[in-house]
Structure formats: C-alpha cells, structure tokens
Amino acid sequence: MALNNTYGARLVQQETALGAGVQILLLALLGSATGMGPAGWLTGLVFAVASWAVLSRAVHRSRLSSFGPANRVTLGRATLVGGVTALVADSFRSSPPVTLFVALTAVALILDGVDGKVARRTGTSSALGARFDMEVDAFLILVLSVYVSAELGPWVLLIGGMRYTFVAAARVWPWLTAPLPPSTARKTVAALQGVFLLLAGAELLPHVANAGVVALALGLLVWSFGRDVLWLWRTSRSRAMTAGETSHVAKDVELIAG
C-alpha cells in the first residue's frame, strides 16, 4: 500500500510538472504569434514556475494519490490564465491582438463552470481542488482588472484586489476565516466579474459604456463582500455571547457544587 501511495504521489507531481511544460509551450506559441516582448515572456515564465511550485507544495501536503479529472481541468484553465497574464504584461508595450486575448480569457471563464461539475460527477471533490479553483479565479480577475484599468483608471483594481484584501484582513481579524454558508448570489456575482471585465477589455462598447459595466461589477462585488463580512461579524458576536453565557453557567455550577 505504501508503495502504491508513493507511486501515485509521483504521478501527481509529474502532472503538475507537465502543466508547467504546457504553460511554457503556450508562451512559445503566443510569442511567435504576437511578437511578445521581454515583459510578457518574463511574466509568463514567472507565472509558470510559481504556479508549479505552489501547486506541487500543496499536492505534497495534501498527500493526493491521484490528481483527478477536475484538477486537470483547473490546471488547463491555469495554463490559459498564464497566457492571459503574459499578454496583459506585454500590453504595456503594445496592445495584444484583441481576438486572441478574448479567446483565451473566454475559454478560461467557460472552464470555470466545468471543473466543479466534473468533480461532483466523478466524486473527486477535495479541499485542494476547491482552493486551486478559487485561486485561479481570483488571479484571473486580478489580471483582467490590471488590463482594464489601463483604459478606465486605477479604480478598476479594486475589483481584482478585493479578495486579496479580504484574505489579508482575515490575518488581523480571525473571525473572517469562518466558513460561509453556500450562496447562489455569491457565485453569480463572482462569475459576472470575469464576464464584465472581459466585455470591457474586448473594446466592443464605447468608453462610457465600459465604465458603466465595470462600475456595476464593482458595485455587485462590494455588496457581496459586504453581505458576507456582516454575516461573519454577526456570527462571531453570537458565538462569543454564547461562549460567555456558557462560561458563566459553568462558574455558577462550580460555586453551587462547592
């Protein structure tokens, strides 16, 4: 059994390394198609190496014996996100081909709805898979925010930075780390962020319309995060009050027993 587990772990690590190799191949294809400059190449390579290192460490710590079909879908999506990241980094030198940028981003967004379904249907859902999916989503939104902010202004970065601000705040206020109840509204708002940012970045609408679309995305995101933070705060207060009452009851029982 130990040998089988070790063999499975090696296969998982090989799959993560293969993902990094495919990422570099995609960069080569994009470079030849767009004449990508040093910034795009460097950013894409850093993304490939960093994502491989982080994923490999997470896989090792989770002791997976099989990477699973859902994680393979997410890994493919991460590869596309790496390509988008390289194009966005290169956009500060020259505008990337809009069709290529839209195509890569659109496929990455579409696949976001695939990996979860694959995990449920194959019974391969895992904490690692959920975290992997979430981190790829968040990074894509951040990259799209950077791209769109070049046209609409730095305020767009609030969209991409909100999730990371929430994570940083949770280090100061641990009650923010409590699990949230499932919410269709939360999932819908999160999915719309990528769609709205892609629409604004596709250059299909006038400047004012793009600003309105992105402002709507930001408003929905603020509402969603605000609702979740309020729920977490109220839940933490309720638990603190319950714990306090329990403590008082325990002390009273001790006094009576004494």
Score class of each variant (00 low, 15 high):
residue 3 L to H: 13
residue 210 N to H: 08
residue 188 T to A: 14
residue 196 F to G: 00
residue 18 L to S: 07
residue 47 F to N: 00
residue 135 E to M: 15
residue 218 L to G: 08
residue 230 L to I: 12
residue 72 R to K: 12
residue 198 L to G: 00
residue 166 F to G: 03
residue 174 P to R: 13
residue 119 A to V: 10
residue 184 T to Y: 14
residue 193 Q to E: 13
residue 15 E to K: 07
residue 230 L to F: 11
residue 147 Y to W: 09
residue 235 T to A: 15
residue 52 W to R: 08
residue 40 G to L: 03
residue 72 R to P: 02
residue 68 G to Y: 01
residue 85 T to F: 03
residue 153 G to C: 09
residue 116 G to C: 10
residue 205 L to A: 15
residue 156 V to R: 01
residue 189 V to I: 12
residue 62 S to G: 11
residue 191 A to S: 11
residue 97 P to A: 11
residue 198 L to T: 01
residue 242 T to C: 07
residue 134 M to W: 03
residue 111 L to I: 04
residue 132 F to H: 03
residue 206 P to C: 08
residue 44 G to H: 03
residue 28 A to M: 14
residue 160 G to H: 02
residue 226 G to T: 06
residue 12 V to S: 03
residue 73 V to M: 04
residue 171 R to W: 09
residue 119 A to K: 02
residue 190 A to W: 09
residue 108 A to K: 00
residue 151 E to M: 13
residue 23 Q to I: 05
residue 162 M to V: 04
residue 93 R to K: 10
residue 200 A to M: 04
residue 31 G to H: 02
residue 49 V to S: 14
residue 136 V to Y: 00
residue 189 V to L: 06
residue 33 A to L: 12
residue 32 S to D: 13
residue 188 T to F: 11
residue 238 S to P: 07
residue 127 A to R: 15
residue 219 G to F: 10
residue 139 F to R: 00
residue 53 A to Q: 11
residue 118 V to L: 06
residue 78 A to W: 01
residue 20 A to G: 10
residue 97 P to V: 09
residue 86 A to T: 04
residue 153 G to H: 15
residue 190 A to R: 08
residue 117 K to G: 03
residue 79 T to N: 08
residue 223 W to A: 13
residue 226 G to V: 07
residue 147 Y to R: 15
residue 190 A to E: 10
residue 58 A to D: 11
residue 232 L to Y: 01
residue 97 P to G: 12
residue 137 D to H: 04
residue 218 L to M: 10
residue 129 G to A: 10
residue 166 F to T: 02
residue 107 V to T: 07
residue 16 T to A: 11
residue 232 L to W: 03
residue 93 R to Q: 15
residue 257 A to H: 15
residue 234 R to P: 03
residue 74 T to R: 01
residue 118 V to D: 02
residue 80 L to K: 01
residue 191 A to D: 04
residue 75 L to A: 15
residue 13 Q to L: 10
residue 225 F to K: 06
residue 172 V to S: 06
residue 172 V to M: 12
residue 206 P to S: 09
residue 63 R to P: 05
residue 3 L to Y: 07
residue 234 R to Y: 08
residue 224 S to C: 08
residue 8 G to H: 05
residue 159 I to E: 00
residue 234 R to H: 12
residue 28 A to H: 12
residue 83 G to S: 05
residue 258 G to I: 06
residue 78 A to Q: 03
residue 208 V to E: 14
residue 96 P to T: 02
